[in-house]
């Protein structure tokens, strides 16, 4: 049996149409699996361990500190409470003997001891606050950030007692009443929860640097501690660095270049 020319052309036509459709379909499915892979992968950042280095030599004037603190506190709606015993702070400034009480006896130059130091949550590798939290409101993420889930916090203050660095503050006052302006992109907190620096997890996850690092204009360094090529690793290896209260073996991940 022979095929008519007309039928042959029809079959070829169907064939071409079919392959174009399947090509398009394949393209869409291919893209879909790409997106799915991206969604699946977003949670796992294997081998990342975030750390910060602060160049204390570069922080000279009050304004240098102000700029950094303001950037953080404004972005995260941290209230400005006048009562010094019950204030709330994520990043603040203190003297050498208060920041490094056990290093005081060591042979560090007078000039260094007169400097002011920028203090914040150390995001310890071995965080005591995480161990004491009865509701797992504070926990360590895979990338080393010590996170505080405000939704779970019951305000028991155990973590404040456990933290050797005073990085945690309880909301004794309604925080909204002490805010001059609000950043609508970030929540506030409420009466009766504990809060602290969260290493700008929301910015890191979106591929940006923390607010303080950005505002410091090169005086602070941030990066992956596990990557030998990263900026923090470089500045840590090229300079003399100290951490706060190393004898407690909490393994802080905020390094001070002196």
């Amino acid at each position: 049996m022979s095929i008519k020319r007309r039928d042959f052309l029809k079959i070829v036509g169907y064939g071409i149409a079919g392959s174009i459709i399947s090509l398009g379909g394949g393209f869409i499915v291919g893209r879909g699996s790409e997106i799915l892979a991206m969604i699946d992968k977003q949670g796992e950042k294997k081998g990342v361990k975030w750390a910060m280095a602060i160049d204390t030599r570069a922080f000279k004037s009050e304004e240098d500190f102000e700029a950094v603190i303001k950037a953080c506190h404004q972005a995260h709606n941290v209230p400005n409470i006048p009562d010094k015993n019950r204030e709330v702070k994520w990043i603040w400034v203190d003297t050498f003997e208060r920041a490094f009480p056990t290093a005081e006896t060591e042979f560090i130059s007078e000039e260094v001891k007169r400097r002011k130091f920028l203090l914040l949550c150390n995001h310890c590798d071995n965080p005591p606050c995480v161990r004491v939290c009865p509701v797992q409101a504070t926990f360590k993420r895979e990338d080393g950030i010590v996170m505080q889930d405000m939704h779970r916090c019951i305000g028991c203050k155990f973590c404040m007692a456990a933290c050797p660095y005073g990085s945690r503050n309880y909301n004794f006052y309604p925080p909204r009443e002490y805010l001059a302006s609000m950043n609508p992109e970030f929540p506030t907190r409420t009466l009766g929860v504990v809060e602290k620096c969260i290493f700008c997890y929301h910015r890191l996850d979106e591929g940006k640097m923390p607010y303080c690092v950005e505002a410091s204009q090169g005086k602070m360094f941030f990066g992956n501690l596990n990557d030998p090529e990263s900026e923090v690793r470089k500045v840590i290896s090229e300079n003399i660095v100290i951490v706060r209260k190393p004898e407690l073996s909490t393994k802080p991940k905020v390094f001070y270049i002196i």
């Binding site: 997106i35 799915l36 991206m38 969604i39 977003q42 949670g43 796992e44 950042k45 926990f139 993420r141 895979e142 990338d143 996170m147 889930d149 939704h151 997890y201 929301h202 996850d205 979106e206």
Partner: peptide
């Protein structure tokens, strides 16, 4: 969303 964003390190929802 809040569990995934805060506790599972994810950003996007599809």
């Amino acid at each position: 969303w809040r569990t995934r964003k805060i506790r599972k390190m994810q950003v996007y929802y599809m």
